[in-house]
Nucleic acid binder design. Structure first.
Length: 157
DNA sequence: GCCAACGTTGGC
DNA sequence: GCCAACGTTGGC
């Protein structure tokens, strides 16, 4: 099993939003970066673990545990002229953008970006790499295990 | 709002 | 294929 960290802006789709959706499932629409798309298209498997991360907000960090619940399929928003994610170069025959479906397993405490940065075992984490802007990044098994342990600890220390 | 860093576009 | 210009991300 591969694990992933997936960023979402809570003003668009928050962890609580997903928990309120049928089956606690959400389509990961709106990815418009080829690297992130390729992770979804080529690498994600059913049951892959997902760290749900809030970005572009007051308290960025991990806020939930989820899993890949459906394999990649064309992102419908690319075909919708009313959508901010509309892509005029995409066609039904040749879609450009794909999305997986993610199912929230549990809300966690906020594991803040600062706390992740301060953890010696996470110095190589892709999320924390200088200049990283990717909205989907792989998480190694070691990082995954360590983060599970951190989530069980109280925050602030 | 600022700005560093990165990705994409398009002329050549 | 190069690369300057531009747009976006995302923390602060």
């Amino acid at each position: 099993m591969t694990c992933w960290l997936m960023k979402s802006e809570p003003s668009e789709v928050s962890v609580d939003d997903v928990l309120g959706m049928p089956g606690q499932r959400v389509d990961w629409f709106g990815v418009r970066n080829y690297q992130a798309r390729n992770f979804m298209m080529r690498d994600m498997q059913l049951g892959d673990g997902v760290l749900f991360y809030h970005s572009s907000c007051a308290e960025p960090g991990i806020v939930g545990l989820a899993e890949v619940s459906r394999l990649a399929r064309p992102d419908p928003t690319q075909f919708d002229p009313q959508s901010p994610y509309y892509d005029p170069k995409a066609t039904q025959e040749h879609p450009r953008w794909f999305c997986v479906e993610v199912r929230m397993l549990s809300k966690t405490r906020l594991l803040s970006l600062n706390e992740l940065r301060a953890e010696p075992g996470l110095q190589g984490m892709r999320l924390l790499a200088r200049g990283n802007r990717l909205s989907i990044t792989p998480v190694t098994p070691e990082e995954w295990t360590l983060i599970q342990r951190m989530l069980k600890r109280a925050s602030g220390g």
